[in-house]
């Protein structure tokens, strides 16, 4: 019997950062908390947030975040692509779990998103309400710790609820908690 038997897609929607692609939530058939530090050790460039806990990384162009009871994937090409990547992920999780005796778990962050990656998940209005001339400048300042997500007003408008969820998954990787009632 494998550690993880199944990952079931629970919700699919068009991807907010790229309408031609899809974003989805999936539910693993068991709690994944214990395997996350081991996955952090085997996945290159993963961002592990031990307070979540969550693990975020890129699989080619797709952004994947694993929580104990939930997996999100953004920018999957389509549902076929998503199922295929989830199968790959399930195998990776099971393989990592089987080999955990020989893997040294890593609890720190090994990767930070780039400003461009952050920028993709902003409303991109260049409204200047945050005090920065452009959204890209805001993304850079955010990475430097000189701005906080709450300073982006459009992000908290109702029409950007979906974008906001995705945004906070990414920034959670480097320690910003999601605002209440997101």
């Amino acid at each position: 019997m494998p550690f993880l038997e199944d990952i079931a897609i629970a919700f699919i929607e068009p991807c907010v950062a790229d309408p031609g692609r899809v974003r989805l939530y999936a539910e693993p058939s068991r709690d994944l908390a214990e395997v996350l530090p081991y996955l952090n050790a085997v996945v290159n460039h993963a961002a592990y947030n031990k307070d979540g806990p969550s693990l975020t990384f890129m699989k080619e162009f797709r952004l994947i975040t694993i929580y104990p009871r939930r997996i999100t994937m953004s920018k999957a090409q389509n549902t076929t692509d998503a199922w295929q990547v989830l199968d790959w992920l399930k195998d990776l999780i099971n393989d990592t779990y089987d080999r955990r005796g020989s893997i040294t778990p890593v609890h720190g962050v090994r990767w930070r998103p780039t400003a461009l990656q952050i920028y993709e998940w902003l409303p991109r209005t260049n409204c200047k309400a945050c005090g920065e001339p452009t959204c890209l400048a805001f993304a850079v300042k955010l990475l430097l710790g000189e701005r906080t997500p709450q300073e982006c007003e459009p992000l908290f408008l109702p029409e950007h609820a979906s974008l906001r969820r995705a945004f906070f998954e990414i920034v959670a990787a480097f320690g910003y908690p999601a605002p209440p009632g997101r």
Binding site: I12, E13, P14, P19, G20, R21, N78, T79, T80
Partner: peptide, 17 residues
Amino acid sequence: GTGGDSMLEHQPEWLPD
């Protein structure tokens, strides 16, 4: 129609859709 990518005005580039 191919489902999730209704915003696109043309067939998506991705297979199999």
